[in-house]
């Protein structure tokens, strides 16, 4: 079985180090927000700053409240369903919004995204490969 052609993204240089940061577009109703996100295979959920939810007109505090934990402790966040586009491939995802998320990266976690793509991090080449899965594979 041959794999489909992947989407290939060069890692982004930030202060002399290279990170798998890719462009994404968030969509709520007809409002769109083009941004970039760090692809984090260790993150269960994608998480975004609450200011983005406000811009999108999303009342994120009506979402279910959860407490995602990292090595620095946990924060309060809310789950909402939104659409995320990666190179025009639109995915409905459960994501988190938090006004306690102070990291200056949007994080693109596994929920929704890693169901839709096979993800390959090539750190030596500083490239990220996303292979879109066939519809029957992720349903």
């Amino acid at each position: 079985m041959s794999l489909p052609l992947p989407l290939i993204f060069d890692y982004e240089e930030i202060a002399g180090k290279f990170y798998p940061v890719i462009p994404i577009e968030l969509k709520v109703n007809e409002k769109r927000f083009l941004t970039r996100a760090y692809v984090d295979s260790g993150a269960t959920f994608s998480i975004f700053n609450a200011e983005i939810a406000d811009y999108l007109g999303l009342d994120y505090r009506k979402g279910d409240k959860i407490y995602p934990a990292g090595i620095g402790g946990h924060i309060c966040a809310y789950i909402k369903d939104i659409f995320i586009s990666i190179h025009n491939i639109e995915i409905c995802c459960e994501v988190l919004f938090s006004d306690e998320f102070t990291v200056k990266f949007n994080l693109l976690g596994r929920a929704g995204i890693f169901d839709r793509f096979r993800v390959c991090f090539d750190d030596s080449e500083k490239k990220l490969y996303l292979y879109e899965k066939a519809y029957s594979d992720f349903r």
Binding site: K17, Y19, Y38, D40, G42, A43, T44, F45, I47, D64, K65, I66, Y67, P68, A69, G70, I71, H74, L96, V103, F105, L107, G109
Partner: peptide
């Protein structure tokens, strides 16, 4: 950036 966000607790 050692990003870990692996768990989600619903207290």
């Amino acid at each position: 950036y050692i990003l870990v966000l692996a768990f989600a607790f619903d207290f």
